[in-house]
Structures are given as C-alpha cells and as structure tokens.
Amino acid sequence: MPRLSVWFIRASLLYLLLGFLFGALLLAQKGISFYSPVWYIFPLHMEFLLMGWLVQLTMGVAFWILPRFSIGQSRGNKPLILISFALINAGTLIGILQFWFPVVLLIGRVSEVGAGIVFAAGLWRRVKPHGVL
C-alpha cells in the first residue's frame, strides 16, 4: 500500500471514530435528552462520516488498487493526489468552525470540490484497459 493511501485511510479511520462518537451522542440524546445543545454536532456527524470516512476511504483505496503504469511514475501524478488529500481534509475539518463563522462552510465545500477535481485529474489516466502502458 503506497504512503499516500496509508494517509488517506488512516485519516478516514479517525473520522470514522469521531463520526461514530458524534452519532452515539446524538442517538443517546434522542433516548434520554441529557444535553440538548448536542444537536449542534449533527452537521459534523454527517460531514465526518460521508466526506471524512466514506469518500476519503474510497480515495485512498482507489489510489492503491487502480491499474498502475509500466513506464514512469507507476501511480501517476502523486503531487496532485497529495494536494487532494490536503484539500479534502481542510474542507472537512474547517466545518468545525461553522458554528462561529458560518461562511467557512462555503469555503470548506469549495475545498472539497477542489479535492474531487484534483483527485480525478491525478487518477484519470490510470482508469485504462489492460495492456496500456
């Protein structure tokens, strides 16, 4: 497994833990209503599990297992994938600040769009038929 995939997947595991923790707090709140402001973490529960866990895990696994090139850099343009790693995490984490600065939500989403585009650009040519070098 390449180093960048390790970063993507380990980060996704951390988001999984945080997302599950937030979800557990929300479900418990539904059950016994111990602290109603806990509902403020609902957007983070969704963001961490969808973007942080599911999307980031698939990015890491795709970078690892998609067909490689026989010539040159075997996994394509690594700097682009590194940038997408930075952007997806910046976009996901910046959401924490949305309670105090609502505008950062928009900035975070733009960052996530950038991550998706850069990631696709970095991996595009690796989605290829067998035999293409």
Partner: peptide, 20 residues
C-alpha cells in the same frame, strides 16, 4: 425505549472502535 437507544448508541460506537 429511551435507554434502549442509549445502549444501542454505546454498542454501535464500540463496533467502530474495535474495527479501527
């Protein structure tokens, strides 16, 4: 029913923790 939800919450979190 409320406490069942609390128990469910703890159990599901533990599943995630053990997986990680």
């Amino acid at each position: 029913g409320g406490w069942l939800l609390v128990i469910s919450a703890v159990i599901q979190f533990m599943a995630g923790l053990l997986f990680v």
